[in-house]
Nucleic acid binder design. Structure first.
Lengths: 350, 350
DNA sequence: CTGAAAGCGCTAACAG
DNA sequence: CTGTTAGCGCTTTCAG
């Protein structure tokens, strides 16, 4: 007995394996075996006695003690860059579903696109002895990630870090951007501006910006530096950018948003500015989101299979933990994005 | 030394407090004191030596061992009913921000509105020895929650459970619904249907349904049972419900969605059915969401201060953990929702 | 100012 | 089939 149970005000002292052992009249080892389902090592009778005591007491093994001893916690973590981005939400659900059915716990963290916060989370998670990490990294903590990936498997999602030798799940950005530009051109646009968040160190943004430039020249359209607009994805920042862009005499006829957050901001700002889509300007975005099809006009996008990507990331991580194919070289899984044509670039193209 | 560091393939054995102690030429106790910032108990010189070793080795204390010994993990958890509901996302950010600045870690869990999953998470979290729990409960695990709340402080968010003696953060649903109905009536509607998810055991839904009925009779409008529609918030379910509703000769002129998910589904289905809002039918919802103002027509709602609610919940929990006001009676904090008039109930009312 | 020793709750040999 | 014995990595008396 651990005594002092059921004090009035607060925290009843939780019961331990020793309590269970004592009450069942067996040793801790036997209870431990029971907990680990090694039933073949005990008589049906002891087994039943232990079951009875556990049910009666509501005993719950202490995961800290167990983890400390076993050096595995059966817990994974996912750090997403920005939980406000619907892409992250979908990825999370994919990860979660897979973990659930594989019997792993998941700790979710939101780095809020801040490298400091990301670093802090990685430290905490490592301290908590998680078994593995899935991360959509800010790209500013590579050496930390390199060291952490010595201690546990890490899988990168969305954003690649070549120097990192980790399993990676991404999308073929170049192909996606090509689909965007080709579609725009088919719709008669050749004055295409792109709005992007700061893209140094963030691989998908970088690839999208490159892809934009290349797709342009591949179509014989000169690349204009002043139409590659780097801005935050907040409404105020985008409004400033667009206002400036639209007062200049020579304006683009189409706007391409580098990601969800950017496209969402563009749509909102255009609406506030009473700039009509697609009459005044076409809009297209990288990455789909729930309401893109519901607003007026519905927004054409290249969609990423976010849920599947999350699932795949979890599968790779857990696969490694379960040591199928030990010493496997880092896998890089690249999904193809898909053009979803709606109305924001004009109609009649299918 | 713990030996075997830097094996080629995988998991380098992490360094422990003993390693640090050995390398610094002091005892584990001293390093432990250092880790706990009890600097007054050691010479500046030893302190510096320890700092040096820790920096050099990248030592990270094992949180499992620490938690096991201290019986506190400095970790809180939040279980939300449905992470797809924008309400949850906002609540989470509020909780997260507060935890962050108070120096607590947060584990996020999504119960997916499934009592079994909720139960599983509660069990796991308790096993992990979290210090406290914030939960938007399904309402189907009350006895579990009762027992858990003996072991750690629990705060309920959004959904109340009277039998549970916990701090609670909610919204005044009756007031919100009254605002909804009053607004509808001012706009000339007296044929008001309400769509709700199954509401047994879920206090806000229950209160909203009651409020609907009461607000109706308070305004001299008879309550019609066949206009209180219980359905899932999926598009298919809502489509079926609305299709049936609209084929009957006597149809409502306004639709009230019990929560975000329901209102969102209503909006989408109406659009697909080509039923015009507000000309054919008015729409109003409980709880605001990001795109409500961006779709056509913008949807009128009563908004809940979700972010603040999350923050408050975290504050209550951490306050209790830090033992300010020990033995304080459970607090129930009720926020007032706010009517946000847009265009989906007709115009001209402000 | 510092160290030795015991122990948190559990698991894992090793004996029987 | 079952118990005894050592720890996992850390904190914490209690002595110096």
């Amino acid at each position: 007995m651990t005594g002092d149970r059921d004090r009035p005000g607060q925290a009843a002292m939780p019961i331990t394996i020793s309590d269970v052992a004592a009450q069942a009249g067996v040793s801790k080892s036997t209870v431990s075996r029971y907990l680990n389902e090694r039933y073949e090592c005990m008589s049906l009778e002891t087994r039943d006695r232990i079951t009875a005591v556990i049910d009666a007491t509501g005993y719950r093994p202490n995961a800290l003690a167990r983890g400390l001893k076993q050096k595995r916690t059966h817990t994974l973590a996912a750090i997403v860059a920005n939980i406000l981005n619907p892409f992250s939400t979908s990825v999370i659900r994919g990860i979660e579903d897979y973990c659930q059915q594989a019997g792993f716990n998941l700790i979710l963290c939101n780095a809020d696109d801040r490298p400091a916060k990301e670093r802090q989370y990685v430290d905490i998670l490592a301290a908590k002895q998680i078994d593995g990490l899935i991360i959509n990294t800010t790209g500013k903590n590579n050496s930390l990630l390199a060291s952490i990936s010595q201690q546990m498997p890490v899988v990168l999602i969305d954003r690649k870090v070549p120097e990192l030798q980790c399993d990676t799940v991404t999308v073929d950005c170049a192909a996606g951007v090509k689909a965007v530009i080709d579609h725009l051109i088919r719709q008669g646009h050749n004055k295409i501006a792109m709005l992007t968040l700061p893209y140094q160190a963030v691989s998908p943004r970088l690839e999208r910006v490159h892809g934009y430039r290349e797709a342009l020249v591949a179509n014989g359209i000169p690349y204009r530096e002043d139409w590659l607009l780097e801005t935050d994805a907040t409404e105020t920042a985008v409004e400033k950018t667009l206002a400036a862009l639209f007062t200049r005499p020579d304006r683009p006829s189409a706007l391409f948003g580098v990601n969800n957050l950017m496209t969402m901001a563009i749509v909102k700002v255009l609406k506030r500015l009473k700039i009509k889509v697609p009459q005044d300007v076409a809009v297209i975005g990288f990455d789909d989101w729930e309401w893109a099809s519901q607003i007026e006009p519905p927004v054409t996008v290249v969609a990423q299979p976010a849920y599947d990507m999350g699932k795949k990331a979890a599968a790779l991580l857990i696969g490694r933990l379960q040591g199928k194919n030990p010493g496997r070289k880092p896998a890089v899984v690249t999904y193809m994005p898909e053009l979803v044509i709606r109305k924001s670039c004009g109609e009649g193209d299918c």
